[in-house]
């Protein structure tokens, strides 16, 4: 009986232990479930955290690229402006270059000869071809009579150009005062009469006036004077005057030399008895 009782007690104890083991196992399973859930949550959070970092990185990159693009666009605009400036300057330099070439050629030609008539021809060529005058005359001062006498003309007969008293009319005043005259009606071709030129340029050696170039009309296609024309007028005023004056002196001295030479030859001849 005691033995039976002992066995029953042992069985109860075993059942108790088994139940406790069962409870413990169930608790462990629950705990495991909770941990799995937390792990899943953490993994998800880690993934999400990685995406945000990437987005932030990309946003930073986009911002940097946008800044660079803006800076490049600004630089491009700046270079474009500079380019425009250079293009304008290039055109100006080209124009200046061409003008200098014109002035060089005019000056070179004026001093290329000591023949008076050739110099006059070159003056006419410059006024026709470089300035674009249609009708004009070159008048020189005759010291003896104090008059301006026409020595060369273009587009008009020399006989139609009257002599002008020094200090009288437009041409005479220009010769006296040594200042260029430009008519107010110089825009357009102009059709000045022999006493009323549209442009009058004094031919000066320093302050000494030796003559005047009087322009009465311009070529049909010449609408107005440009800057280079005024430069050419200045050049003509000085260089043409020097060229005309020196060629005139040279021609006179050549003539005198021939006369003296003839006289010497005559003296060298043995006197006839």
């Amino acid at each position: 009986m005691d033995k039976e009782l002992h066995l029953t007690k042992k069985a109860d104890e075993f059942l108790q232990i088994f139940k406790k083991g069962e409870e413990f196992t169930q608790e462990l399973l629950k705990e495991n479930e909770k941990l799995r859930f937390k792990l899943a949550q953490l993994e998800d959070a880690v993934d999400r955290c990685g995406d945000e970092a990437k987005v932030k990185l990309y946003e930073d990159r986009i911002r940097t690229t946008e800044d660079e693009l803006k800076s490049l666009k600004d630089r491009y605009r700046q270079v474009e402006e500079e380019n425009k400036d250079f293009a304008v300057k290039y055109i100006e330099v080209e124009e200046e270059n061409n003008n200098l070439a014109n002035l060089y050629v005019a000056s070179y030609q004026l001093h290329s000869t000591l023949d008076f008539n050739e110099v006059l021809k070159i003056v006419l060529e410059i006024v026709i071809n470089l300035i674009g005058a249609e009708r004009f005359a070159v008048l020189l001062i005759e010291e003896k009579t104090n008059e301006l006498v026409p020595v060369a003309t273009e587009g008009m007969s020399i006989a139609n150009i009257p002599k002008v008293k020094f200090g009288e009319g437009i041409i005479g005043t220009v010769a006296k005062e040594g200042e260029s005259y430009f008519s107010e009606h110089v825009q357009g071709r102009g059709n000045g009469s022999e006493e009323d030129p549209i442009v009058s340029i004094p031919l000066k050696i320093k302050e000494h006036v030796i003559g005047v170039i009087a322009i009465y009309s311009l070529l049909a296609q010449k609408e107005k004077f440009s800057n280079i024309d005024y430069e050419l007028f200045n050049l003509l005023a000085g260089h043409a005057a020097t060229a005309i004056f020196s060629s005139k002196l040279y021609t006179q001295s050549e003539r005198k030399l021939t006369t003296i030479q003839s006289f010497l030859d005559l003296l060298k001849e043995k006197p006839r008895r």
Binding site: N98, A101, N102, Y104, V105, A106, Y108, Q109, S112, I122, E125, I126, N129, L130
Partner: peptide, 12 residues
């Protein structure tokens, strides 16, 4: 025929 123009054109 004009030496001035010839020189100018040649220059250009």
């Amino acid at each position: 025929d004009s030496p001035t123009m010839r020189q100018l054109i040649s220059f250009a």
